[in-house]
Design a protein around this nucleic acid. Structure first.
Lengths: 193, 193
DNA sequence: TGAAATAAAGACCGTTCGGTCTATATTTGT
DNA sequence: ACAAATATAGACCGAACGGTCTTTATTTCA
């Protein structure tokens, strides 16, 4: 890993939480300079422009979250355990300290930044895919009733979680999120054989 | 209504869709000048600063949406009809052209603007209250089973709708939102007596 | 270890930002 | 209709913006 590659990665890791929090438009170059303790030369030697930093920051956050979720899922031995482990990542506040990048970047990019929107779109679809894979495997293994619709379940579950994250951030507490996560679990139990 | 009051209202109505779309940080004064065809004097004669325009814009959008929803609900004769009318407002794209202000302002304000966050908080709670009122009235009128938990239902339904709006905006189509709205309806039917 | 290659600093650039203020135009109430 | 009150235009301001470029410092590899 060359010096430049290391610096580039360092800039991304230092900027990502900031951009996730303050937004792309709301984060200035001086914010990034302060967070990295680098001068402009150090930043613009490694990135074309601010937008590139934003894009790489999103991709970094998305990958971080994905690996956290994948790890949680992989630790589950049954479909039920896999799903519950996944939900617990969202329930455990410190895993999502600065909010969900899909929600944050998605709402900002939807009307203004087609490339970023496309990246968020991929992230949504792969989050839903992670959920539907759990369900489909569960059906295959005779753990779950065939009555469960994996597509609908994954869409509904993804949506309600994102809505829950919004409520948690705005309301400032976990109460509603806990109700939501428990409801998902209770609904799901109906399909466990 | 004095000239100033009319101008003030006009500025809000012209700016609100813009700010809802591009965000608070992403909307500049020149954007607002262009949208209103007013010079700075005309704008700053009626508002203290940009933030006041943002706040008023949110309150305006929230009130607009609330009255649309209240109207839809009031046209329903049963709890079931009230809820379904409400859901159809979200299903009907052109009622929510520029996206949900709660989602857009909420995600931007959560970490950066405590006053705005407080306003969004109120909007969330009153949206949930509108839902729980429908359920509680329905129970009272013996239209709905007492097994339905109005608090949980309203929290879950609000969250899944907001998540659905996010998916609609990012994915660029209504398919997932339609699945979500139908799921809400199907789940609800189980409690209709 | 020393020369060539590369990375970072920071002065500098034009532009745009949010916001002020005075001069002019428009309402308003009589 | 006119005078007093009020609202808007737009020149102006300093600060901050994103971005460039040359100079200096640091890696890198022979």
């Amino acid at each position: 890993m060359s010096k430049a590659e290391r610096t580039r990665q360092f800039i991304i890791e230092a900027s990502a939480p900031l951009i996730n929090k303050k937004g792309m438009a709301g984060t200035s170059l001086s914010d990034i300079m302060e967070a990295t303790k680098l001068a402009k030369g150090g930043i613009y030697g490694n990135f074309e422009n601010k937008e590139e930093i934003c894009i790489e920051s999103f991709l970094y956050l998305r990958a971080q979250l994905a690996s956290k979720l994948d790890l949680a899922v992989s630790k589950g031995k049954s479909a039920r355990e896999k799903l519950f482990n996944l939900l617990d990542v969202y329930g455990n506040g410190n895993a999502m300290i600065e909010g969900c990048p899909i929600l944050n970047f998605g709402t900002e990019a939807d009307d203004t930044n087609p490339f970023m929107r496309e990246q968020v779109k991929k992230a949504i679809l792969s989050s839903q895919r992670r959920l539907s894979n759990i369900i489909e495997d569960g059906i295959q293994n005779k753990e779950l009733s065939q009555e469960i619709n994996s597509e609908h379940f994954s869409i509904n579950t993804f949506a309600i979680i994102e809505g829950g994250i919004l409520c948690r951030k705005v309301l400032g507490n976990d109460d509603q999120m806990n109700i939501i996560l428990n409801s998902i679990k209770n609904d799901f139990e109906r399909y466990v054989l």
